[in-house]
Write a protein that binds this DNA or RNA. Structure first.
Lengths: 266, 266
DNA sequence: TCCTCTGTTCGGCATCGCCGAACGCACGCA
DNA sequence: TGCGTGCGTTCGGCGATGCCGAACAGAGGA
Protein backbone atom coordinates (compact mmCIF):
# COMPACT_ATOMS: atom_id res chain seq x y z
CA UNK A 1 0.00 0.00 0.00
CA UNK A 2 1.35 3.38 -1.01
CA UNK A 3 0.73 6.19 1.46
CA UNK A 4 -0.71 9.49 0.16
CA UNK A 5 2.59 11.23 0.77
CA UNK A 6 5.05 9.27 -1.30
CA UNK A 7 8.17 11.21 -0.26
CA UNK A 8 10.94 8.81 0.51
CA UNK A 9 12.40 8.58 3.97
CA UNK A 10 9.61 10.28 5.84
CA UNK A 11 9.01 8.84 9.27
CA UNK A 12 5.31 8.26 9.47
CA UNK A 13 4.71 8.71 13.17
CA UNK A 14 6.70 11.94 13.39
CA UNK A 15 4.93 13.40 10.41
CA UNK A 16 1.60 12.45 11.96
CA UNK A 17 2.59 13.99 15.28
CA UNK A 18 3.38 17.22 13.45
CA UNK A 19 0.00 17.14 11.74
CA UNK A 20 -1.66 16.72 15.12
CA UNK A 21 0.18 19.76 16.47
CA UNK A 22 -0.80 21.79 13.40
CA UNK A 23 -4.41 20.75 13.79
CA UNK A 24 -4.41 21.75 17.44
CA UNK A 25 -2.75 25.05 16.59
CA UNK A 26 -5.00 26.04 13.71
CA UNK A 27 -8.33 25.91 15.48
CA UNK A 28 -8.84 28.08 18.50
CA UNK A 29 -10.82 25.41 20.31
CA UNK A 30 -9.31 22.34 21.91
CA UNK A 31 -9.84 19.05 20.10
CA UNK A 32 -10.62 15.51 21.19
CA UNK A 33 -9.11 12.24 20.02
CA UNK A 34 -12.14 11.39 17.93
CA UNK A 35 -12.17 14.75 16.20
CA UNK A 36 -8.47 14.53 15.40
CA UNK A 37 -8.88 10.99 14.08
CA UNK A 38 -11.63 12.09 11.73
CA UNK A 39 -9.85 15.22 10.54
CA UNK A 40 -6.58 13.47 9.83
CA UNK A 41 -8.04 10.18 8.64
CA UNK A 42 -6.13 8.09 11.17
CA UNK A 43 -7.44 5.40 13.50
CA UNK A 44 -8.56 6.65 16.89
CA UNK A 45 -6.24 4.34 18.80
CA UNK A 46 -3.28 5.51 16.77
CA UNK A 47 -4.06 9.15 17.48
CA UNK A 48 -4.30 8.32 21.14
CA UNK A 49 -0.82 6.83 21.22
CA UNK A 50 0.67 9.81 19.42
CA UNK A 51 -1.13 12.29 21.61
CA UNK A 52 -0.05 10.52 24.77
CA UNK A 53 3.57 10.67 23.67
CA UNK A 54 3.22 14.36 22.82
CA UNK A 55 1.68 14.89 26.24
CA UNK A 56 4.62 13.25 28.00
CA UNK A 57 6.89 15.64 26.14
CA UNK A 58 4.63 18.58 27.08
CA UNK A 59 3.97 19.39 23.47
CA UNK A 60 0.32 18.88 24.26
CA UNK A 61 -1.83 19.26 27.36
CA UNK A 62 -5.01 17.46 28.24
CA UNK A 63 -7.89 19.33 29.77
CA UNK A 64 -8.60 17.46 33.02
CA UNK A 65 -12.30 18.12 32.76
CA UNK A 66 -13.24 17.38 29.17
CA UNK A 67 -10.37 15.08 28.20
CA UNK A 68 -9.74 17.19 25.13
CA UNK A 69 -6.29 18.33 24.09
CA UNK A 70 -4.56 21.65 23.47
CA UNK A 71 -1.01 22.70 22.66
CA UNK A 72 1.52 22.49 25.48
CA UNK A 73 4.09 24.79 27.03
CA UNK A 74 7.14 23.11 25.53
CA UNK A 75 6.19 24.66 22.20
CA UNK A 76 6.46 28.14 23.66
CA UNK A 77 9.91 27.35 24.99
CA UNK A 78 11.05 25.91 21.68
CA UNK A 79 9.59 28.86 19.83
CA UNK A 80 11.63 31.12 22.05
CA UNK A 81 14.70 29.01 21.50
CA UNK A 82 14.13 29.39 17.76
CA UNK A 83 14.15 33.15 18.19
CA UNK A 84 17.29 33.06 20.33
CA UNK A 85 19.12 31.03 17.70
CA UNK A 86 17.84 33.12 14.84
CA UNK A 87 20.70 35.02 13.33
CA UNK A 88 18.75 37.73 11.53
CA UNK A 89 16.65 38.39 14.60
CA UNK A 90 19.50 38.61 17.07
CA UNK A 91 21.53 40.85 14.82
CA UNK A 92 18.52 43.06 14.13
CA UNK A 93 17.75 43.93 17.76
CA UNK A 94 20.01 46.97 17.99
CA UNK A 95 19.37 48.18 14.46
CA UNK A 96 15.62 47.98 14.91
CA UNK A 97 15.75 49.87 18.20
CA UNK A 98 17.85 52.55 16.61
CA UNK A 99 15.47 52.91 13.68
CA UNK A 100 12.40 53.04 15.88
CA UNK A 101 13.73 55.79 18.09
CA UNK A 102 15.02 57.71 15.10
CA UNK A 103 11.75 57.89 13.19
CA UNK A 104 9.28 57.37 16.03
CA UNK A 105 7.45 54.50 14.38
CA UNK A 106 7.11 50.77 15.02
CA UNK A 107 9.65 48.47 13.38
CA UNK A 108 9.18 44.88 12.26
CA UNK A 109 11.64 42.28 11.04
CA UNK A 110 10.41 39.24 9.11
CA UNK A 111 11.63 36.18 7.24
CA UNK A 112 10.03 34.35 4.34
CA UNK A 113 8.40 31.14 5.50
CA UNK A 114 6.54 29.28 2.80
CA UNK A 115 4.34 31.91 1.24
CA UNK A 116 4.08 34.10 4.31
CA UNK A 117 6.35 36.46 6.17
CA UNK A 118 7.00 35.35 9.72
CA UNK A 119 7.58 38.26 12.09
CA UNK A 120 10.67 37.51 14.17
CA UNK A 121 11.12 40.90 15.81
CA UNK A 122 8.90 43.84 16.62
CA UNK A 123 9.76 47.12 18.29
CA UNK A 124 6.84 49.16 19.50
CA UNK A 125 6.32 52.72 18.41
CA UNK A 126 8.02 54.79 21.11
CA UNK A 127 4.92 56.23 22.72
CA UNK A 128 2.58 55.00 25.41
CA UNK A 129 -0.17 53.72 23.16
CA UNK A 130 -1.36 50.16 23.59
CA UNK A 131 0.23 47.94 20.95
CA UNK A 132 0.05 44.20 20.51
CA UNK A 133 3.18 42.22 19.96
CA UNK A 134 3.27 40.58 16.55
CA UNK A 135 6.27 38.31 16.95
CA UNK A 136 5.26 34.89 15.66
CA UNK A 137 2.53 36.24 13.42
CA UNK A 138 2.42 35.28 9.73
CA UNK A 139 1.38 37.63 6.93
CA UNK A 140 0.92 36.63 3.28
CA UNK A 141 4.02 37.83 1.47
CA UNK A 142 2.18 39.79 -1.18
CA UNK A 143 0.23 41.81 1.38
CA UNK A 144 3.13 43.32 3.29
CA UNK A 145 6.15 45.41 2.40
CA UNK A 146 8.42 42.97 4.21
CA UNK A 147 7.31 40.23 1.85
CA UNK A 148 7.61 42.24 -1.31
CA UNK A 149 11.06 43.48 -0.31
CA UNK A 150 12.26 39.91 0.29
CA UNK A 151 10.66 38.20 -2.69
CA UNK A 152 11.92 40.88 -5.09
CA UNK A 153 15.47 39.63 -4.56
CA UNK A 154 14.61 35.94 -4.34
CA UNK A 155 15.85 33.67 -7.13
CA UNK A 156 13.57 33.37 -10.16
CA UNK A 157 12.18 29.86 -9.62
CA UNK A 158 11.08 30.62 -6.11
CA UNK A 159 9.79 34.07 -7.02
CA UNK A 160 7.77 32.68 -9.91
CA UNK A 161 6.35 29.95 -7.69
CA UNK A 162 5.25 32.54 -5.16
CA UNK A 163 3.70 34.72 -7.86
CA UNK A 164 1.86 31.69 -9.22
CA UNK A 165 0.62 30.62 -5.81
CA UNK A 166 -2.67 31.70 -4.25
CA UNK A 167 -2.79 35.42 -3.53
CA UNK A 168 -5.69 35.96 -1.15
CA UNK A 169 -7.11 39.45 -0.68
CA UNK A 170 -6.96 40.73 2.90
CA UNK A 171 -8.44 44.15 2.15
CA UNK A 172 -9.92 45.82 -0.90
CA UNK A 173 -6.47 47.15 -1.73
CA UNK A 174 -4.53 43.85 -1.60
CA UNK A 175 -2.79 43.25 -4.91
CA UNK A 176 -3.94 39.87 -6.17
CA UNK A 177 -2.95 40.13 -9.84
CA UNK A 178 0.39 38.34 -10.47
CA UNK A 179 1.37 40.76 -13.23
CA UNK A 180 0.80 43.85 -11.11
CA UNK A 181 2.68 42.17 -8.33
CA UNK A 182 5.60 41.43 -10.64
CA UNK A 183 5.74 45.11 -11.58
CA UNK A 184 5.81 45.95 -7.89
CA UNK A 185 8.81 43.67 -7.42
CA UNK A 186 10.63 45.37 -10.31
CA UNK A 187 9.92 48.71 -8.65
CA UNK A 188 11.38 47.34 -5.40
CA UNK A 189 14.67 46.41 -7.07
CA UNK A 190 14.73 49.85 -8.67
CA UNK A 191 13.92 51.88 -5.56
CA UNK A 192 15.58 49.68 -2.94
CA UNK A 193 12.48 49.61 -0.76
CA UNK A 194 8.95 48.21 -0.85
CA UNK A 195 5.77 50.03 0.03
CA UNK A 196 2.53 48.56 1.26
CA UNK A 197 -0.52 50.78 1.39
CA UNK A 198 -3.41 49.26 3.36
CA UNK A 199 -2.99 45.93 1.59
CA UNK A 200 -3.09 43.92 4.81
CA UNK A 201 -5.00 46.14 7.25
CA UNK A 202 -7.11 49.15 6.38
CA UNK A 203 -5.46 52.30 7.68
CA UNK A 204 -1.98 50.78 8.03
CA UNK A 205 1.03 51.11 5.75
CA UNK A 206 4.55 49.71 5.73
CA UNK A 207 7.91 50.67 4.26
CA UNK A 208 10.48 47.86 4.11
CA UNK A 209 13.90 47.09 2.68
CA UNK A 210 15.59 43.71 2.15
CA UNK A 211 18.34 42.33 4.35
CA UNK A 212 21.00 40.11 2.77
CA UNK A 213 23.13 37.36 4.26
CA UNK A 214 26.77 36.54 3.64
CA UNK A 215 25.88 34.80 0.39
CA UNK A 216 24.15 37.88 -0.94
CA UNK A 217 20.81 36.12 -0.74
CA UNK A 218 17.83 37.80 0.94
CA UNK A 219 17.63 36.70 4.57
CA UNK A 220 14.48 38.67 5.27
CA UNK A 221 13.42 42.29 5.52
CA UNK A 222 13.08 45.13 7.97
CA UNK A 223 10.47 47.83 7.86
CA UNK A 224 8.38 50.55 9.46
CA UNK A 225 4.69 49.99 10.13
CA UNK A 226 2.16 52.58 11.13
CA UNK A 227 -0.85 54.66 10.19
CA UNK A 228 -1.15 55.40 6.49
CA UNK A 229 -1.38 59.13 7.17
CA UNK A 230 2.19 59.19 8.36
CA UNK A 231 3.80 56.45 6.27
CA UNK A 232 2.15 56.67 2.88
CA UNK A 233 0.01 59.78 2.53
CA UNK A 234 -1.62 59.48 -0.90
CA UNK A 235 0.73 56.63 -1.67
CA UNK A 236 3.89 58.67 -1.17
CA UNK A 237 6.17 57.72 1.69
CA UNK A 238 8.27 60.50 3.26
CA UNK A 239 11.78 60.50 1.83
CA UNK A 240 13.23 60.63 5.34
CA UNK A 241 11.51 57.34 6.17
CA UNK A 242 12.55 55.48 3.03
CA UNK A 243 16.12 56.69 3.43
CA UNK A 244 16.25 55.61 7.06
CA UNK A 245 14.82 52.16 6.31
CA UNK A 246 17.26 51.54 3.48
CA UNK A 247 20.19 52.75 5.52
CA UNK A 248 19.38 50.56 8.51
CA UNK A 249 18.70 47.55 6.30
CA UNK A 250 22.09 48.01 4.62
CA UNK A 251 23.79 48.28 7.99
CA UNK A 252 22.06 45.12 9.16
CA UNK A 253 23.05 43.34 5.94
CA UNK A 254 26.67 44.24 6.53
CA UNK A 255 26.24 42.93 10.07
CA UNK A 256 25.04 39.64 8.57
CA UNK A 257 28.24 39.42 6.56
CA UNK A 258 26.86 40.56 3.24
CA UNK A 259 29.50 41.82 0.84
CA UNK A 260 29.18 44.13 -2.12
CA UNK A 261 26.45 42.05 -3.70
CA UNK A 262 24.07 43.34 -1.11
CA UNK A 263 24.73 46.85 -2.33
CA UNK A 264 22.21 46.24 -5.10
CA UNK A 265 19.60 46.86 -2.44
CA UNK A 266 20.73 50.45 -2.06
CA UNK B 1 15.76 -5.33 24.62
CA UNK B 2 14.22 -2.93 27.07
CA UNK B 3 14.61 0.75 26.29
CA UNK B 4 15.79 3.11 29.05
CA UNK B 5 12.37 4.71 29.30
CA UNK B 6 10.07 1.85 30.15
CA UNK B 7 6.84 3.84 30.12
CA UNK B 8 4.16 1.94 28.33
CA UNK B 9 2.69 3.25 25.14
CA UNK B 10 5.39 5.75 24.28
CA UNK B 11 6.02 6.04 20.57
CA UNK B 12 9.73 5.80 20.18
CA UNK B 13 10.27 7.91 17.09
CA UNK B 14 8.13 10.77 18.32
CA UNK B 15 9.85 10.80 21.67
CA UNK B 16 13.22 10.84 19.90
CA UNK B 17 12.11 13.67 17.63
CA UNK B 18 11.18 15.66 20.72
CA UNK B 19 14.58 14.98 22.23
CA UNK B 20 16.23 16.23 19.07
CA UNK B 21 14.24 19.45 19.23
CA UNK B 22 15.15 19.90 22.89
CA UNK B 23 18.82 19.33 22.12
CA UNK B 24 18.72 21.89 19.32
CA UNK B 25 16.92 24.34 21.57
CA UNK B 26 19.16 24.01 24.61
CA UNK B 27 22.47 24.86 23.02
CA UNK B 28 22.83 28.19 21.31
CA UNK B 29 24.92 26.73 18.50
CA UNK B 30 23.54 24.67 15.65
CA UNK B 31 24.23 20.96 15.75
CA UNK B 32 25.15 18.35 13.15
CA UNK B 33 23.81 14.85 12.71
CA UNK B 34 26.91 13.28 14.24
CA UNK B 35 26.79 15.49 17.30
CA UNK B 36 23.13 14.76 17.86
CA UNK B 37 23.74 11.04 17.44
CA UNK B 38 26.45 11.09 20.09
CA UNK B 39 24.55 13.25 22.56
CA UNK B 40 21.37 11.21 22.34
CA UNK B 41 23.01 7.82 21.93
CA UNK B 42 21.16 7.01 18.71
CA UNK B 43 22.58 5.73 15.43
CA UNK B 44 23.57 8.43 12.98
CA UNK B 45 21.35 7.14 10.21
CA UNK B 46 18.36 7.11 12.52
CA UNK B 47 18.96 10.71 13.54
CA UNK B 48 19.17 11.66 9.91
CA UNK B 49 15.78 10.18 9.13
CA UNK B 50 14.17 11.94 12.07
CA UNK B 51 15.82 15.24 11.26
CA UNK B 52 14.79 15.05 7.64
CA UNK B 53 11.19 14.51 8.63
CA UNK B 54 11.37 17.41 11.07
CA UNK B 55 12.83 19.53 8.30
CA UNK B 56 9.94 18.75 5.96
CA UNK B 57 7.62 19.90 8.70
CA UNK B 58 9.72 23.05 9.20
CA UNK B 59 10.40 22.13 12.79
CA UNK B 60 14.11 22.33 11.98
CA UNK B 61 16.15 24.10 9.33
CA UNK B 62 19.39 23.03 7.74
CA UNK B 63 22.16 25.53 7.26
CA UNK B 64 22.90 25.38 3.53
CA UNK B 65 26.60 25.99 4.08
CA UNK B 66 27.59 23.75 6.96
CA UNK B 67 24.83 21.15 6.75
CA UNK B 68 24.15 21.62 10.44
CA UNK B 69 20.67 21.98 11.86
CA UNK B 70 18.81 24.56 13.92
CA UNK B 71 15.23 24.96 15.09
CA UNK B 72 12.68 25.94 12.45
CA UNK B 73 9.98 28.57 12.13
CA UNK B 74 7.03 26.24 12.63
CA UNK B 75 7.94 26.13 16.32
CA UNK B 76 7.49 29.87 16.63
CA UNK B 77 4.08 29.63 15.03
CA UNK B 78 3.04 26.78 17.29
CA UNK B 79 4.39 28.62 20.31
CA UNK B 80 2.21 31.55 19.36
CA UNK B 81 -0.74 29.27 18.84
CA UNK B 82 -0.15 27.92 22.34
CA UNK B 83 -0.36 31.45 23.70
CA UNK B 84 -3.51 32.21 21.71
CA UNK B 85 -5.20 29.11 23.09
CA UNK B 86 -3.99 29.70 26.62
CA UNK B 87 -6.93 30.54 28.80
CA UNK B 88 -5.08 32.20 31.66
CA UNK B 89 -3.05 34.30 29.28
CA UNK B 90 -5.92 35.51 27.14
CA UNK B 91 -8.04 36.35 30.15
CA UNK B 92 -5.14 38.14 31.82
CA UNK B 93 -4.42 40.62 29.01
CA UNK B 94 -6.83 43.31 30.16
CA UNK B 95 -6.21 42.80 33.87
CA UNK B 96 -2.46 43.00 33.43
CA UNK B 97 -2.72 46.19 31.37
CA UNK B 98 -4.92 47.73 33.98
CA UNK B 99 -2.54 46.81 36.80
CA UNK B 100 0.51 48.07 34.93
CA UNK B 101 -0.96 51.48 34.22
CA UNK B 102 -2.36 51.74 37.74
CA UNK B 103 0.94 51.17 39.56
CA UNK B 104 3.41 52.12 36.83
CA UNK B 105 5.39 48.90 37.00
CA UNK B 106 5.90 45.92 34.72
CA UNK B 107 3.48 43.01 35.08
CA UNK B 108 4.12 39.34 34.44
CA UNK B 109 1.80 36.34 34.28
CA UNK B 110 3.19 32.84 34.62
CA UNK B 111 2.14 29.20 34.85
CA UNK B 112 3.86 26.34 36.59
CA UNK B 113 5.65 24.09 34.11
CA UNK B 114 7.62 21.29 35.68
CA UNK B 115 9.70 23.00 38.32
CA UNK B 116 9.83 26.38 36.60
CA UNK B 117 7.43 29.21 36.01
CA UNK B 118 6.80 29.82 32.34
CA UNK B 119 6.05 33.46 31.56
CA UNK B 120 2.98 33.62 29.33
CA UNK B 121 2.34 37.36 29.43
CA UNK B 122 4.42 40.43 30.09
CA UNK B 123 3.37 44.07 30.11
CA UNK B 124 6.19 46.56 30.02
CA UNK B 125 6.55 49.24 32.62
CA UNK B 126 4.72 52.23 31.14
CA UNK B 127 7.75 54.41 30.44
CA UNK B 128 10.12 54.66 27.50
CA UNK B 129 12.95 52.62 28.96
CA UNK B 130 14.31 49.72 26.95
CA UNK B 131 12.86 46.46 28.25
CA UNK B 132 13.20 42.95 26.92
CA UNK B 133 10.18 40.80 26.46
CA UNK B 134 10.19 37.78 28.72
CA UNK B 135 7.29 35.80 27.29
CA UNK B 136 8.49 32.23 26.87
CA UNK B 137 11.17 32.51 29.52
CA UNK B 138 11.37 29.99 32.35
CA UNK B 139 12.32 30.83 35.93
CA UNK B 140 12.87 28.29 38.73
CA UNK B 141 9.73 28.37 40.84
CA UNK B 142 11.52 28.98 44.12
CA UNK B 143 13.34 32.04 42.80
CA UNK B 144 10.35 34.11 41.76
CA UNK B 145 7.24 35.41 43.48
CA UNK B 146 5.06 33.97 40.71
CA UNK B 147 6.35 30.51 41.55
CA UNK B 148 5.98 30.83 45.30
CA UNK B 149 2.46 32.22 44.91
CA UNK B 150 1.42 29.29 42.74
CA UNK B 151 3.14 26.47 44.62
CA UNK B 152 1.78 27.68 47.97
CA UNK B 153 -1.70 26.64 46.89
CA UNK B 154 -0.70 23.52 44.99
CA UNK B 155 -1.79 20.15 46.41
CA UNK B 156 0.52 18.61 48.98
CA UNK B 157 2.08 15.81 46.92
CA UNK B 158 3.12 18.15 44.16
CA UNK B 159 4.24 20.85 46.57
CA UNK B 160 6.36 18.40 48.50
CA UNK B 161 7.90 17.06 45.32
CA UNK B 162 8.84 20.57 44.28
CA UNK B 163 10.31 21.32 47.70
CA UNK B 164 12.32 18.10 47.54
CA UNK B 165 13.58 18.79 44.03
CA UNK B 166 16.78 20.62 43.20
CA UNK B 167 16.71 24.26 44.28
CA UNK B 168 19.56 25.98 42.45
CA UNK B 169 20.81 29.34 43.66
CA UNK B 170 20.56 32.11 41.07
CA UNK B 171 21.88 34.87 43.32
CA UNK B 172 23.29 35.02 46.82
CA UNK B 173 19.79 35.63 48.11
CA UNK B 174 18.03 32.70 46.46
CA UNK B 175 16.35 30.56 49.10
CA UNK B 176 17.68 27.04 48.67
CA UNK B 177 16.71 25.55 52.03
CA UNK B 178 13.47 23.52 51.71
CA UNK B 179 12.42 24.34 55.26
CA UNK B 180 12.81 28.07 54.85
CA UNK B 181 10.98 27.78 51.56
CA UNK B 182 8.13 25.93 53.23
CA UNK B 183 7.83 28.74 55.75
CA UNK B 184 7.68 31.18 52.85
CA UNK B 185 4.79 29.23 51.37
CA UNK B 186 2.93 29.33 54.67
CA UNK B 187 3.44 33.08 54.74
CA UNK B 188 2.02 33.30 51.23
CA UNK B 189 -1.19 31.55 52.23
CA UNK B 190 -1.40 33.86 55.26
CA UNK B 191 -0.75 37.13 53.42
CA UNK B 192 -2.31 36.30 50.06
CA UNK B 193 0.74 37.38 48.15
CA UNK B 194 4.35 36.27 47.60
CA UNK B 195 7.44 38.43 47.71
CA UNK B 196 10.72 37.84 45.97
CA UNK B 197 13.67 40.03 46.92
CA UNK B 198 16.61 39.72 44.53
CA UNK B 199 16.36 35.93 44.56
CA UNK B 200 16.52 35.62 40.77
CA UNK B 201 18.29 38.82 39.64
CA UNK B 202 20.28 41.17 41.83
CA UNK B 203 18.46 44.50 42.10
CA UNK B 204 15.07 43.14 41.06
CA UNK B 205 12.06 42.24 43.18
CA UNK B 206 8.61 40.84 42.51
CA UNK B 207 5.21 40.85 44.21
CA UNK B 208 2.79 38.18 43.02
CA UNK B 209 -0.57 36.66 43.88
CA UNK B 210 -2.09 33.36 42.79
CA UNK B 211 -4.81 33.00 40.17
CA UNK B 212 -7.34 30.19 40.52
CA UNK B 213 -9.34 28.34 37.90
CA UNK B 214 -12.94 27.15 38.02
CA UNK B 215 -11.93 24.15 40.12
CA UNK B 216 -10.35 26.36 42.75
CA UNK B 217 -6.92 25.05 41.79
CA UNK B 218 -4.05 27.45 41.12
CA UNK B 219 -3.85 28.13 37.39
CA UNK B 220 -0.80 30.36 37.73
CA UNK B 221 0.09 33.73 39.17
CA UNK B 222 0.25 37.40 38.31
CA UNK B 223 2.75 39.87 39.68
CA UNK B 224 4.69 43.11 39.53
CA UNK B 225 8.39 43.11 38.74
CA UNK B 226 10.79 45.98 39.08
CA UNK B 227 13.71 47.52 40.90
CA UNK B 228 14.01 46.47 44.53
CA UNK B 229 14.06 50.11 45.65
CA UNK B 230 10.46 50.55 44.57
CA UNK B 231 9.02 47.07 45.15
CA UNK B 232 10.71 45.79 48.30
CA UNK B 233 12.70 48.49 50.06
CA UNK B 234 14.40 46.72 52.95
CA UNK B 235 12.19 43.72 52.30
CA UNK B 236 8.93 45.62 52.77
CA UNK B 237 6.64 45.99 49.77
CA UNK B 238 4.40 49.08 49.64
CA UNK B 239 0.89 48.25 50.84
CA UNK B 240 -0.58 49.92 47.77
CA UNK B 241 1.29 47.46 45.56
CA UNK B 242 0.37 44.32 47.46
CA UNK B 243 -3.26 45.41 47.63
CA UNK B 244 -3.37 46.11 43.89
CA UNK B 245 -1.79 42.78 42.99
CA UNK B 246 -4.16 40.81 45.20
CA UNK B 247 -7.16 42.69 43.90
CA UNK B 248 -6.27 42.17 40.24
CA UNK B 249 -5.43 38.50 40.82
CA UNK B 250 -8.81 38.00 42.49
CA UNK B 251 -10.55 39.70 39.59
CA UNK B 252 -8.70 37.51 37.13
CA UNK B 253 -9.57 34.40 39.16
CA UNK B 254 -13.23 35.31 39.01
CA UNK B 255 -12.79 35.80 35.26
CA UNK B 256 -11.41 32.25 35.10
CA UNK B 257 -14.56 30.97 36.73
CA UNK B 258 -13.21 30.52 40.24
CA UNK B 259 -15.87 30.45 42.93
CA UNK B 260 -15.63 31.12 46.62
CA UNK B 261 -12.77 28.70 47.08
CA UNK B 262 -10.47 31.18 45.43
CA UNK B 263 -11.26 33.66 48.16
CA UNK B 264 -8.74 31.90 50.37
CA UNK B 265 -6.15 33.80 48.35
CA UNK B 266 -7.44 37.12 49.65
C1' DT C 1 -32.88 4.68 33.04
C1' DC C 2 -31.11 4.11 28.83
C1' DC C 3 -28.44 5.48 24.96
C1' DT C 4 -24.71 7.72 22.82
C1' DC C 5 -20.77 9.80 22.87
C1' DT C 6 -16.40 10.45 24.71
C1' DG C 7 -11.32 8.87 25.81
C1' DT C 8 -8.97 4.67 26.61
C1' DT C 9 -7.13 -0.23 26.37
C1' DC C 10 -5.60 -4.34 24.10
C1' DG C 11 -4.18 -8.28 20.89
C1' DG C 12 -2.07 -9.52 16.78
C1' DC C 13 -0.24 -8.85 12.22
C1' DA C 14 2.89 -6.72 9.01
C1' DT C 15 4.66 -2.55 8.43
C1' DC C 16 7.75 0.60 9.45
C1' DG C 17 11.70 2.38 11.14
C1' DC C 18 15.92 1.10 13.37
C1' DC C 19 20.87 -0.09 12.95
C1' DG C 20 25.46 -0.40 10.99
C1' DA C 21 28.25 -0.22 7.22
C1' DA C 22 29.37 1.94 3.04
C1' DC C 23 29.27 6.21 0.12
C1' DG C 24 30.55 10.90 -1.67
C1' DC C 25 31.96 15.10 -0.72
C1' DA C 26 34.45 19.13 1.35
C1' DC C 27 37.91 20.71 3.91
C1' DG C 28 42.69 21.14 5.90
C1' DC C 29 46.99 19.76 6.40
C1' DA C 30 51.30 18.42 4.39
C1' DT D 1 48.24 18.51 -5.20
C1' DG D 2 47.55 14.63 -2.82
C1' DC D 3 45.94 12.30 1.16
C1' DG D 4 43.34 11.77 5.36
C1' DT D 5 39.74 12.83 8.14
C1' DG D 6 35.53 14.41 9.22
C1' DC D 7 31.07 15.54 7.79
C1' DG D 8 26.02 14.54 6.04
C1' DT D 9 23.85 11.10 3.47
C1' DT D 10 22.28 6.53 1.48
C1' DC D 11 21.01 1.76 1.63
C1' DG D 12 19.80 -3.23 2.73
C1' DG D 13 17.86 -6.32 5.75
C1' DC D 14 16.16 -7.86 10.23
C1' DG D 15 12.89 -7.52 13.80
C1' DA D 16 11.07 -4.66 17.09
C1' DT D 17 7.43 -1.36 16.78
C1' DG D 18 3.66 1.04 16.26
C1' DC D 19 -0.32 0.60 13.44
C1' DC D 20 -5.40 -0.89 13.18
C1' DG D 21 -9.94 -2.27 14.69
C1' DA D 22 -12.76 -3.90 18.02
C1' DA D 23 -13.96 -3.95 22.72
C1' DC D 24 -14.08 -1.27 27.21
C1' DA D 25 -15.42 2.20 30.85
C1' DG D 26 -17.35 6.28 32.19
C1' DA D 27 -19.72 10.74 31.72
C1' DG D 28 -23.63 13.42 30.08
C1' DG D 29 -28.00 14.20 28.15
C1' DA D 30 -32.63 12.98 26.89
Amino acid sequence: MIPPDTRRGTIQSVERAARILRALGSGTARMGVTELAEDLGIAKGTIHGLVRTLEQQEFVEQDPGTGKYRLGPALLQLGNAFLDNHELRSRSLLWADSLASRVGEAVRVGVLNGSTMLIVHHVFRPDDSVQILEVGASIPWHACALGKATVAYEESPRRDALLAGPLPALTGRTITDPERLREELVAVTRDGFALEDQEAIVGEAEIAAPVFDHRGMPAGALGLVGPVERLALEGHPPAAFTAAVREIARGLSRDMGAGRLAARGG
